[in-house]
């Protein structure tokens, strides 16, 4: 009889505890099971950036080599002395720039290759970084390739940069240690935003939406959300344009992949912070949040960058560990390329 009472008491306690805990549900950051169902396949390949398509081949920069989809061999690989740190593909002529860092001295040089099998031509100088769109920099200058290293900007120290296709946003310190912001078009070397007063803010996303209109994304520590701000030649607006729905509270992510899309009637920026993609309509120099949820099966993927594929409405996304994805806007499909 005593055993009965003990058993029933234990049972009652378990049920009471379960009911109490259910009533103070710890709400998940997002639907756990839908997040699992949307998870992308890990491929054990770390992609730093998708470089582009040339002759129907998809090239990407992994953590140690330039590779192309479907080939086991590196196009430009690392060695015992050298590690590949950066790369850029010119999709017009198939030429490459590759940033090679010496493992011992940590100094890096840039090699130019006229094609995937061409011999290297090493540029003069040592460099700190090479962007996927072909801009590169050292401790005091920003360059583009023009039969050698051609300086676009001098007497600046790059603090960080953000890339969207052919365009790059730079936060630099000038010779007087003042923060300055630049936007440079890589293919022409044009300074579209030319040294406006900057700040120490670290923006996490950047997208060009018109000739002199850009979007910057900034993470706000106090609200634990990311917000969109407008950047023009006049500076960064202090007003928040909008807060992407995909900016999940308390889920800070430095990734902020985006691309500009025109459906024939209007321009849209499709932005991804750390969850779903947000579709933002660009209208008369303003942006309007219109929807979220695009490419749901990529919402758990860490995206490195997104480039146009050359086919209207089709974009290619590089992901940190799930290879490349082909995103078709019209029918909202995204399929893995590997």
């Amino acid at each position: 009889m005593r055993t009965h009472k003990t058993t029933i008491l234990a049972l009652a306690l378990i049920l009471i505890a379960a009911i109490a805990l259910c009533s103070c549900n710890l709400d998940a950051t997002d639907g756990i099971y839908s997040e699992i169902a949307d998870s992308t396949e890990s491929t054990n390949v770390t992609i730093k950036s998708f470089l582009g398509i040339y002759n129907d081949e998809y090239y990407y920069l992994s953590d140690e080599a330039v590779r192309k989809i479907g080939s086991g061999n590196a196009v430009f690989g690392s060695s015992e002395q050298i590690i590949v740190r950066g790369a850029s593909l010119n999709t017009t002529d198939g030429s490459f720039l590759v940033l090679n860092q010496n493992r011992n001295t940590l100094t890096a040089n840039i090699s130019y290759y006229a094609g995937a099998t061409a011999n290297a031509e090493t540029l003069d100088g040592t460099f700190n970084g090479l962007l996927p769109n072909g801009l590169f920099y050292d401790s005091s200058k920003i360059y583009r390739y023009n039969a050698g290293a051609s300086a676009i900007l001098s007497d600046v120290a790059v603090q960080y940069y953000l890339v969207c296709g052919d365009y790059a946003f730079f936060s630099v310190k000038d010779a007087d240690q003042n923060y300055k912001f630049y936007v440079i078009q890589a293919s022409t070397g044009t300074k579209l935003i030319d040294g406006i007063d900057g700040s120490s803010s670290t923006y996490t996303g950047f997208q060009r939406i018109a000739d002199d209109d850009y979007v910057l994304l900034n993470y706000n520590n106090s609200t634990a959300k990311s917000n969109l701000y407008k950047l023009t030649s006049a500076g960064v607006s202090s007003d928040i344009w909008t807060t992407p729905k995909s900016s999940v509270p308390s889920a800070y992510s430095t990734q902020a992949a985006s691309f500009l899309y025109n459906d024939g009637d209007a321009d849209y920026v499709i932005f991804k912070c750390n969850s779903y993609f947000d579709k933002v309509k660009v209208s008369d120099g303003d942006v309007l949040q219109i929807s979220t949820g695009f490419a749901a099966n990529l919402r758990t993927a860490d995206i490195t960058n997104i480039l146009e594929s050359g086919t209207a409405g089709v974009y290619i996304a590089g992901t940190v560990d799930s290879m490349l994805y082909r995103m078709d806007i019209a029918n909202d499909t995204s399929t893995q390329l590997r």
Binding site: I14, L15, A17, A18, L21, C22, C24, N25, L26, D27, A28, T29, D30, G31, I32, E35, I36, A251, T300
Partner: peptide, 13 residues
């Protein structure tokens, strides 16, 4: 009864 579930940054009872 109930189950504590955890995945990535999500928690749920």
């Amino acid at each position: 009864g109930g189950a504590f579930i955890r995945y990535n940054e999500g928690k749920f009872f």
